[in-house]
Design a protein around this nucleic acid. Structure first.
Length: 416
RNA sequence: GUGGCUAUGGUGAAGCGGUCAACACUUACGACUGUGACUCGUACAUUCGAGGGUUCAAAUCCCUCUAGCCACCCCA
């Protein structure tokens, strides 16, 4: 039995890599337009970093991390998300000392030990962006708009933006207490999972899919009604800024995030097209994270896009590039000549293909057709002698005669 | 971690106990000894996820394992 890939680890084959490049290039374009720079950080970190940032009691840390002991007896973890590593680098290299505002983006694989299913894999990819050093809700709005702009750029307008505020260490505890009090009286109406959530993560009962729970929590207190003055104002301003640039959004007071570090603004881009995985991108503000990791007291906000989920939404669009020209040859001498021509044309930026092993003209032409090349040319004794050849436009069969120089061919094949 | 479903060639699949494992696509070569797409021909699974068992006979029935998918939990 041949060796296969690890469960939940996927190969991105040539027929889909074009789609991935399309997604990545769009992100780079949009993010750089917004003044973001790429940061590349390792895919492994000391385990402690994730425990301290994501939260010891979260599912990610408790049961989903790829953690192992290396030969130096250190506990190492494959990153389950990107923000922690980026913030570690930010603090370690004191980026805040060079510029009070930093706008960073990253992309790459993340790892979580979960049962794979549609849109969820053990190795998956995220494209993320982070802004540090700005408290103002203006930047929340810019980040949200940038996220939406990315989706417009790749031609997806289906996902809708939902926003919420989780409050801050000032107001969240009080809200949590109020919610617990509310739920306490209705424990018997909640599903089994929610009774467990009551102790582990009471906010989660608010977005439970069970009909009984939805009904029981109907009149539950809303975080948005319990924000402190600062958080309330912040949220209102975010909405105001979003309205001013006509970025559509929906307020979802029941939206909950899975990482402990979020404060104030949180958001998700959701879709109904991915089975049970509705979030294609999500993020939020994390004003306490940097100091919690031992850095200065600097606020931050960011998001991550699930690349596999985006790729799934893009569907089967063809992103492959067509060659400009296929050179068919009639013999060994012609093949040698074609090879020289091919390299000359490549130097001019023309995408050229040719036959490598002396196949019949028939099969060379078939290959040209299969590659969807735009033009083809046959080089035989006649052409070599006269220095001229017929260039055939494949879509309609029109033949154009030209001298066999790279410049002249370039004119025909790539006119602009 | 829990549950459901499925496993036949490069791909999509027929086959439901009995001669060479249908068909389609893909691929290769040819019909056309210098021109693709349409058409036609030829070739391409000693073998049906793996291992056991039942039977004179198993891709077809039974058991075990493995893998994949989908869902739950949770999440991008």
């Amino acid at each position: 039995m041949a060796i296969t890939a690890i469960k939940g680890f996927n190969d991105i084959l040539p027929n889909e890599s074009g789609r991935w490049q399309h997604i990545e290039q769009a992100a780079r374009r949009v993010f750089e337009l917004n003044g973001f720079s790429e940061i590349r950080v390792p895919i492994m970190e000391k385990t402690e970093l994730f425990c301290r940032s994501i939260g010891d009691a979260t599912d990610i840390v408790e049961k989903e991390m790829y953690t192992f002991i290396d030969k130096g007896d250190n506990s190492i973890t494959l990153r389950p998300e990107g923000t922690a590593g980026v913030m570690r680098a930010f603090i370690e290299h004191k980026l805040h000392a060079q510029d009070p505002v930093s706008k960073l983006y990253y992309l790459g694989p993340m790892f979580r030990y979960e049962r794979p299913q549609k849109g969820r894999y053990r190795q998956f990819h995220q494209i993320g962006a982070e802004v540090t050093g700005v408290n103002d809700p203006l930047v929340d709005a810019q980040v949200l708009n940038m996220l939406c702009a990315f989706f417009r750029e790749i031609g997806l307008d289906e996902p809708s933006l939902q926003i919420n505020s989780l409050g801050c260490p000032e107001c969240r505890p009080a809200y949590r207490a109020a919610l617990l009090k509310f739920l306490e009286g209705r424990l018997d109406q909640l599903c089994e999972d929610c009774r467990r959530r009551f102790t582990t993560n009471p906010l989660r009962t608010l977005d439970c899919k069970a009909a009984g729970c939805a009904e029981a929590t109907q009149g539950a207190p809303s975080m948005l009604d319990n924000l402190c003055g600062g958080c309330g104002q912040h949220f209102d301003s975010v909405r105001c800024y979003l309205d001013s640039i006509k970025t559509p959004y929906k307020i979802n007071p029941r939206m909950v995030r899975g990482l402990d570090y979020y404060t104030r603004t949180t958001f998700e881009l959701v879709t109904g097209l991915l089975g049970s995985q509705s979030a294609v991108a999500a993020g939020g503000r994390y004003d306490g994270l940097i100091s919690q990791l031992g850095g200065p007291s600097i606020p931050g906000i960011g998001f991550a896009i699930g690349v596999e989920r985006v790729a799934l939404l893009l569907g089967q669009q063809d992103f492959s590039r067509r060659p400009d020209l296929f050179i068919a040859t009639m013999g060994a001498a012609e093949r040698a000549g074609a090879f020289v021509l091919l390299t000359e044309l490549q130097n001019l930026g023309v995408r050229v293909e040719m036959d490598y092993e002396g196949k019949s003209l028939k099969s060379q032409m078939r290959r040209a057709d299969k590659l969807k090349t735009r033009y083809s040319v046959v080089l035989g004794g006649n052409e070599l002698e006269s220095g001229r050849a017929l260039f055939k436009r494949m879509e309609d069969g029109l033949q154009i005669e030209s001298v066999l120089t790279a410049d002249a061919i370039n004119e025909i094949v790539c006119p602009d």
